[in-house]
Amino acid sequence: MNGEVSLSCRDLERYLGKEEERVHALRGVSLDIEAGSLHAVVGPSGCGKSTLLYILGLLDQPDAGSIIIASENVSDLPDQEWSRRRNELIGFIFQFHFLMEDFTAEENVMMPMRRLGHLSESEMRDRAAALLHDVDLGDKLRRESRHLSGGEQQRVAIARALANDPQVILADEPTGNLDTRNSERAFALLADLVRQRRKALLLVTHNRFIADACDWVHEMQDGRIIGSHPRGQRGSITTNV
C-alpha cells in the first residue's frame, strides 16, 4: 500500500452486549485504506465485519483503538464532530439501500447536501441530477424511492453516498439484496466511480466475485483480521466468501 491513506484504524477493540451476553466483537483490528482503492472485508456471519464498518463510519464507539480519517485522529471527538465528519468525509451504502421512502430519488441524493449546507437549492438539484445521471437514473429523478426497483434503489443509494464528495465510502453488503445481474451492475458502477474520483472504498460482502474484484480482501474471523490479500494473491483465503 503505497498511496495516500484516506482511512486507517489501529488496534480497534469492541465489546457488544452486557454481562453474560457480552461478546468480544473486535480484537485489535488495524487497517489502512488508500484513496482510489477498493477493499473488501469477508468472513462468516457474526465475525465482526459490520461492527468494524460502523466503527470506521463513526456510527459506533470503539472500546479501544484509534480511527484516522484524512490524517486526523477522530477517535475521541464528540458526537457532534463525528456527525460533521460523517457528513463531509464518509458516504454509506447499506444492504437494504435505506432510502427515505417519502422522498424522490433526487431528494434522497440531496439529503446529505442539505445538512452540509454549502450549495443553494438549485445547485443541490443540479448536483443530484448529475450524480443520478452517472448511475443511469437521469430519467427517474422525480420518482419516489418506493416506486423504484431494488437495483434502482441501490443505485440511488450509491449516488447519495457520493453526494458530498466524501473521501471514504463504506458499504455494508451493497449487493446483498440484489439479483446477480443487478449486483454486478451496481458493483461495477461503484467501482468505476470510486476509481475515477479517487475515493477509498471499504465494503463488507459475502459475494466472492465482488470480493475478487477488489484491490484488497481482508479476511475476518472471531473479531480479528486473519489475513489481508492483494488482488492476485488470494490462494490462501479459506473462509466462506
Binding site: S83, R84, R86, F92, F94, F98, L99, P112, N164
Partner: peptide, 9 residues
C-alpha cells in the same frame, strides 16, 4: 439513515 448521513442529534 439521517444520522448515518451526518445529521446531528
Amino acid at each position: 439513515i439521517l444520522r448515518s448521513m451526518g445529521y446531528r442529534r
